[in-house]
């Protein structure tokens, strides 16, 4: 998926409620509500703001968190992206 562009499966269909202990997002395209922790909601918001590649996303997250890019961050992001795809929140295209 590294070279793919990540984009929302249904742009403009997400509604958010954000709190200190996490956030919930309603996907009007599927009628599903999802709980997201702070890290995963940060990722989804970045993708919602503008389609980007996994490489760009990883770089942006690393900078945003003030951490060196690492295998751990990459694994965290990869796991979250798989979940987003399973939940029909995300699609990727070459």
């Amino acid at each position: 998926m590294d070279g793919h562009t990540l984009r929302l499966a249904a742009p403009g269909f997400l509604e958010w409620r954000v709190w200190d202990d996490g956030c919930v997002v309603f996907n009007a395209a599927t009628g599903q509500t999802h709980y997201l922790d702070n890290f995963t909601s940060y990722l989804l918001r970045l993708i919602e703001a503008a389609p980007l590649t996994v490489d760009d996303l990883t770089e942006t997250v690393s900078v945003g968190l003030g951490r060196e890019r690492s295998a751990q961050i990459e694994a965290q992001i990869a796991g979250a992206l798989r979940n987003f795809e399973t939940l029909a929140l995300l699609e990727s295209a070459r």
């Binding site: 509604e15 409620r17 202990d21 919930v24 309603f26 009007a28 509500t33 709980y35």
Partner: peptide, 23 residues
């Protein structure tokens, strides 16, 4: 708040039927 939201939707018998209005 997020935990409360999830707990309340779990207690609702028709939350899904209301879609965005329920959210």
């Amino acid at each position: 708040k997020a935990a409360a939201f999830i707990a309340l939707t779990a207690c609702s018998v028709n939350y899904r039927e209301f879609g965005a209005a329920g959210f």
